[in-house]
Computed example of a mutant assay.
Amino acid sequence: MLRTLVLGAALVLAVCMLSGCSASPEAKKGDYIISKEGQRILVAKNISKKDSESKAIAEIKKSNIELINYIVEDSQLYNELMIGEKVHVTPKTNDKGEYVVMKSDPPQIIAGQIERLKD
């Protein structure tokens, strides 16, 4: 009886561990470029790669996903960035550590540093 109980518990534990290890990479969320225009990249925050590629901008807005237009001052970097790329953007700040958010929909912020991430 005890042997069956221990074996059952080990089996349940193994299944739980394996299911956690095989989680789909699509489920991982991040910040993705969903549009580029006029030295700006439109970034959807905390979204899955699948949703960033398959959903229209209007649909993303309706889902209450945060969208930010980052102004990219470096033309070469802007040209290298690709729609669908996962990024981490740090706003450009002044000497007090403050940055300006232009009130538009979506808001616009000048990008300070753009880190390109692997999926």
Rank of each mutant, 00 (worst) to 15 (best):
L2D: 13
L2T: 12
R3Y: 10
T4M: 13
L5A: 14
L7F: 15
L7Y: 09
L11M: 14
V12I: 15
V12K: 11
L13N: 08
A14D: 05
V15N: 07
V15H: 06
G20H: 11
C21I: 10
S22I: 13
S22H: 13
P25T: 10
A27S: 15
K28P: 00
K29G: 01
D31A: 01
I34D: 00
I34V: 10
K36E: 05
K36C: 09
K36S: 04
Q39Y: 13
Q39V: 03
R40G: 03
R40A: 08
V43S: 00
A44M: 02
N46Y: 09
K49D: 05
S52L: 01
A56E: 13
I57Q: 11
A58C: 04
E59F: 01
I60F: 05
K61S: 11
L67F: 04
I68W: 06
N69A: 07
Y70R: 03
D74A: 09
D74C: 06
Q76V: 14
Y78F: 15
E80W: 06
E80L: 13
L81D: 06
G84T: 01
P91K: 03
D95C: 04
G97I: 03
E98W: 04
M102N: 10
K103E: 10
D105G: 00
P106E: 00
P106Q: 03
P107C: 02
P107V: 00
I110P: 02
Q113R: 14
Q113I: 13
E115Q: 14
E115T: 14
E115I: 10
L117E: 10
D119Y: 04
D119V: 00
